[in-house]
Amino acid sequence: MSAPKRVKRPISGWVVLNKPYDMTSTQAVGKVRWLFAAAKAGHAGTLDPLATGILPIALGEATKAVPQVQDGTKVYRFAIKWGSATTTDDAEGAVIATSDVRPSREALEAVLPQFTGAVMQRPPIFSALKIAGERAYDLARAGEAVELEPRPVDIDAIAVLEHGAEHTMLEVTCGKGTYVRSLARDLAEALGTRGHVSLLHRAAVGPFTDAEAVTLEQLEAAEGAQRDALLAPVAAGFSELPEIRLDALQASAVRHGNPVLLTGAAAPVQMDECWASFAGGVVATGSVAYGQFQPRRVFNT
């Protein structure tokens, strides 16, 4: 006889996972979903298998908040290995060019302003971007020539944490769509040398940081209510957005997709993006126009 089918739970919340090295984001989501027996799961921003760090995994109703978290600011700590460029712009690829030039800390810090602000960045050819419906990494692995156009990205800050002749550790604060592998490659080229990412750790995604991250080992060691207690609430994904607090009647109307008039001296009149709550739980995301909260997405928390 086959084993009875595992019952999936309608559980909702965030697992702020410190993804381990050499695991894909899809594998991490599958493992977490299995541990919680969750009916639904997704993640807010892919991490390369060779990268570690914050992978926000959404369970249940939290999956509706993935776009807001994905759009949040990211913080990465990464090491550049000087002297060699690779096909993948990281340690996984084959070396395609070398250089004997090793930049000084002063030279590196002098070029950093060129890479901050709104900049154009050419993505790595081994990326998930699509070319005529095909993933760039699939075309690159098949030996085809891949040409990706530079794209605008926002880089808020870059700081040198440690500098050595062979490796340099940096921290970058950036917006959605920034490729750290491209940044390492371009920094090296601007300094007249070659380089690739040899270590990558994501320290923050939107509201989630290393401070509240849990490991797979912690999740596996906990059971039942103890494991559930490691979940962050659905509302944690909105901590960077303004909150509109509703009363019971307003919450009921919004849950049916209806707009509600906000009252009180402090009630906002106009707001492009916000979230509405009742008794601490998420009711909906939406906007405020002419003093009315207009729901875009309703939550069943």
Rank of each mutant, 00 (worst) to 15 (best):
P4N: 03
W14A: 07
T24Y: 02
T26Y: 08
V29W: 06
R33C: 02
A37T: 10
A44G: 14
A44D: 10
L50D: 15
P56F: 13
I57H: 04
A58R: 03
G60E: 08
E61I: 08
Q70V: 14
G72V: 05
K74P: 12
S84E: 15
A85W: 02
T86S: 07
T86G: 05
D89Y: 01
V95S: 11
A97M: 02
V101K: 07
R105E: 15
L108Q: 02
L108M: 12
A110L: 07
V111P: 12
V119M: 02
M120Q: 15
Q121T: 12
A128S: 13
K130A: 12
I131D: 00
A142W: 08
E144F: 05
V146S: 03
E147Y: 04
L148H: 07
E149S: 13
P150N: 15
A159G: 13
G164M: 14
T168L: 05
T173F: 12
T173L: 08
Y179S: 11
R185H: 15
E189L: 14
A190Q: 14
R194E: 15
H196M: 09
L200E: 04
R202F: 03
A203V: 00
V205I: 05
F208G: 06
T215R: 02
E220Q: 15
P233W: 06
V234I: 09
A236M: 01
G237S: 09
E240M: 08
R245Q: 15
A253T: 06
G257Y: 02
Q270A: 15
Q270F: 00
D272Q: 10
A276Y: 04
G280Y: 04
V283F: 01
A284M: 08
F293V: 06
Q294F: 00
P295C: 05
R297N: 13
F299S: 14
F299I: 15
F299Q: 09
N300I: 10
